[in-house]
Simulated scan of single mutants.
Amino acid sequence: MGVIRRVLARSAAVAAALALTPAAAVTTAGPATAQSATAQSAATQESAARASTAQASAAQSAATQASAAQPSAARSAVGSAAKDAAESAAEGAALWRPPLQSRWQYQLEGNPQHAATGGIDVDVCAVPHTGGACVRPTVFDIDLYVDSELAGNNSTVNTAAVKAIHARGAKAICYVDAGSIEDFRPDYRQFLDWHKSHGGSLLGKPFSADFPNERWANINNDRGQRDFLLKMMAARVDKCARAGFDGVEFDVVNAYEEGKKVTGWTVSAATQLAYNRALAKLAHDRGLSVALKNDTGQAAELVSSFDYAVNESCFQWDECAELDVFVKAGKPVFHVEYATAPASFCSRANKLGFNSIKKPADLSLRDKPFKPCR
């Protein structure tokens, strides 16, 4: 079975939308004339890294000056605070944080024509909605594993794609499902065994009628569920880091707003915040930046913990305004619409400063069609 997409939209509404909304025509162009923001992106990242390093040095210098002027107890407190600030600045310099304007590609399903690069078309190029020459993404959001239909197994980490993406000056985000448990993943048995040995307290209802092979995870911690999930997610993120990925996208992190009728669990907003912040820390502790996936209702509370947002269908659900907190913080929004035509959302997305693309209404995430808004 190939890598399977899941969408956090309400499944019944999605089905209705797909029935009523025809798939928009998508225009692609060959790679003959490409405009790439890679050099600009790299320069921006270098500048940010230098600035963060300078901040760390300034913090250390301030600690030294304050230490000379303060009594011993005060010196200790000031020195400790400055050390924390310096360490925070140094961490910021080490993480990849994409520029606000960063064109992206979302491909979770492999193409056998690109087997040498893990099924990912790293040279994809298309004319944007705004017209002109074909353009290439500088950020690729791909699955941790090679599509099983290409690899012949479900456990081949996609280092080939990551290396090819880096060779073209782009960055790679590692897709990890953190809120539903998929039965085609290589570590699925561990989740199932834990569920059975803890009174059936981990695996909830099927994610949706479209995706019955994954079940909502219980992120409460009354029996240690959240602790176990975070342990498993840490192991997955370790693989992302070893494979050379630059960031992580944790999917299905909005169980609290779906409710028990959908998920099988009663999850509070506070519990969701705790889980999502713990996931962000997992990524940062391993030197990876991290995306907030959907969960627009908590965007304002989580923007300080995440480095960018990945959103599906915010125009369809009229939720895009809630992502403005990321743009105002200088953090990019990587956005995709499925059932909405580019003519209906691209102009608005560009005005909001989003990095938006159109993918097919059937929710597939192959290399093509690829239609960026700008």
Rank of each mutant, 00 (worst) to 15 (best):
Val146Phe: 04
Pro99Glu: 00
Val146Gly: 02
Thr138Phe: 08
Pro99Thr: 07
Tyr106Cys: 04
Arg97Gln: 14
Ala167Ile: 03
Asp141Asn: 11
Leu144Arg: 03
Asn153Leu: 12
Ala116Glu: 15
Pro98Ala: 10
Val139Pro: 02
Asn111Met: 06
Asp143Gly: 14
Tyr145Thr: 03
Val146Lys: 08
Gly152Leu: 09
Lys163Tyr: 12
Pro98Ser: 09
Asp123Trp: 14
Val157Met: 06
Ala167Leu: 05
Lys163His: 15
Arg136Ile: 12
Ile120Gly: 05
Asn111Gln: 04
Ile165Arg: 06
Asp123Met: 08
Ala151Phe: 10
Leu108Lys: 10
Ala161His: 05
Asp141Glu: 15
Ile120Arg: 05
Arg136Trp: 04
Leu108His: 08
Ala151Cys: 12
Arg103Met: 05
Val157Asp: 02
Asp141Tyr: 13
Ala151Gly: 10
Pro112Asp: 15
Asn111Pro: 01
Leu144Ala: 10
Pro98Arg: 06
Ser148Leu: 10
Gly110Thr: 10
Val146Cys: 05
Val127Lys: 13
Thr130Cys: 05
Gly132His: 09
Ala160Ile: 05
Gln105Trp: 10
His129Leu: 13
Ser102Thr: 11
Thr156Glu: 15
Val135Lys: 04
Thr117Ser: 12
Ala160Asp: 11
Leu108Met: 12
Val146Tyr: 06
Glu109Asp: 07
Gly131Asp: 00
Gly119Val: 01
Asp121Val: 01
Val139Leu: 02
Ala167Phe: 01
Asp121Met: 00
Gly110Pro: 09
Asn153His: 12
Thr138Arg: 13
Val139Lys: 01
Pro128Asn: 08
Trp96Met: 12
Leu150Gly: 10
Ala116Gln: 15
Asp143Leu: 09
Thr138Leu: 11
Val162Tyr: 04
Arg97Phe: 08
Val139Trp: 07
Val146Gln: 12
Ala133Ile: 13
Arg97Trp: 08
Glu109Leu: 09
Gln113Leu: 14
Gly118Tyr: 08
Arg97Tyr: 09
Gly119Glu: 07
Phe140Leu: 02
Val124Trp: 00
Thr117Phe: 00
Ala161Gln: 06
Thr138Met: 13
Thr117Cys: 03
Val162Phe: 07
Tyr106Asn: 02
Ser102Lys: 01
Asp143Gln: 10
Trp96Arg: 12
Gln107Met: 01
Arg103His: 02
Thr117Arg: 06
Ile165Tyr: 03
Asp123Gly: 13
Arg103Trp: 03
